[in-house]
């Protein structure tokens, strides 16, 4: 298809741009557009679940995380220019060119090996899953059937990894202990228009998120994508009104208990006599809802960790400027 070729070319160009641009913010924006093109490309390759996940998580949330994390840290344009003028830097740029050529040759050798030795081994798993997923699991979406029934271990450890990632982020960013973080960052909203209109948007976003979660076994979507959409409500609320509206420790405890719920619920799959055909569908919906809430809490905590860090940096900066 010529359309997919256009998208692939645009992806390569955007990847090169996000690597080569000197200013970090612009590179991050290019990365976000790259993810968006990626999401549209998955749609052409018959993967609507992945497309939704990439659009929500890769393109929107990851870009927001990057921008919050590097806020106030990047160099000014004049600093970059003066640094790139020095003769030492010229030598370094020459070295970059050299390594670029080396990696291009290695890449082409690997690609030629790949296309020389690839062979078709048939798809036994594909036949099994595609023929029997409706009768086995009661789901209408084969992707949901796989990650909530056939390979539910993958989902469990994925949820565990998300939890570990959040704990690691909180450890590196040193949360303010004991204090109520909510009071620390409560300031006036930046723009009255944004604060008012974003209040009108919450019902739409919540409706869409719950629709995606509850219909995850029938249509593209599911717990991960819907949870990310719900987390965006917290993020919009912070950006529009400068208010968290929820205590972060409650959010963390909620996340852990949702994870326990997911583990307990997936244990039911070990009892085959319990799983008649009505209960199977109910089980899928319940799992999707729990995963959705867990991912929502997790992503909101990840975001707020960076927000606390940023307010701390601004505090110390302001103090050093004043004193």
């Amino acid at each position: 298809m010529p359309v997919t070729i256009v998208f692939l070319l645009a992806m390569v160009v955007l990847a090169v741009a996000s690597i080569q641009v000197r200013k970090a913010e612009i590179a991050v924006i290019y990365l976000g557009i790259f993810s968006l093109f990626n999401a549209i490309f998955y749609l052409f390759y018959s993967a609507p679940d992945l497309s939704l996940a990439e659009a929500v998580i890769g393109s929107a949330l990851a870009t927001a995380l990057f921008l919050v994390a590097i806020k106030g840290y990047t160099l000014r344009r004049t600093q970059i220019k003066s640094e790139y003028r020095s003769p030492k830097m010229r030598l370094a740029l020459f070295g970059e060119l050299f390594w670029g050529v080396v990696f291009l040759t290695i890449g082409f050798i690997v690609i030629s090996f790949y296309f020389g030795t690839v062979q078709d081994v048939g798809k036994p798993a594909w036949y099994h899953y595609v023929r029997s997923f409706i009768s086995d699991t009661g789901a209408r979406n084969a992707v949901t059937a796989i990650y909530l029934n056939y390979r539910v271990f993958d989902t469990l450890f994925e949820a565990l990894l998300l939890l570990v990632g959040i704990l690691a982020t909180a450890y590196f960013l040193e949360w303010p202990e004991g204090k109520e973080p909510e009071e620390e960052i409560a300031t006036k909203p930046d723009s009255e228009i944004v604060a008012r209109i974003s209040g009108l948007l919450y019902p739409f976003i919540l409706l869409y998120g719950f629709y995606i979660i509850v219909n995850g076994h029938l249509t593209p979507g599911g717990g991960f994508q819907g949870g990310a959409i719900l987390a965006s409500v917290f993020i919009i609320r912070y950006f529009a009104q400068r208010r968290l509206g929820i205590n972060i420790f409650i959010l963390q405890r909620l996340e852990k208990s949702f994870f326990l719920g997911i583990i307990a619920l997936s244990m039911l799959l070990l009892l085959p006599e319990f799983m008649n055909s009505d209960f199977k569908v109910f089980h899928l919906v319940l799992m999707n809802i729990l995963i959705g809430f867990k991912v929502c809490c997790g992503l909101a905590i990840l975001f707020f960790c960076f927000i606390f860090q940023q307010t701390k940096v601004e505090d110390t900066k302001g103090r050093s400027e004043r004193g």
């Binding site: 944004v194 209109i197 739409f204």
Partner: peptide, 20 residues
């Protein structure tokens, strides 16, 4: 129709916050 309503709310909002 829901998509249109959402778009009419969000697009001017995004432009407003960028310009501001």
């Amino acid at each position: 129709l829901i998509i249109v309503v959402f778009f009419v709310l969000t697009n001017p909002l995004a432009t407003h916050s960028i310009a501001r």
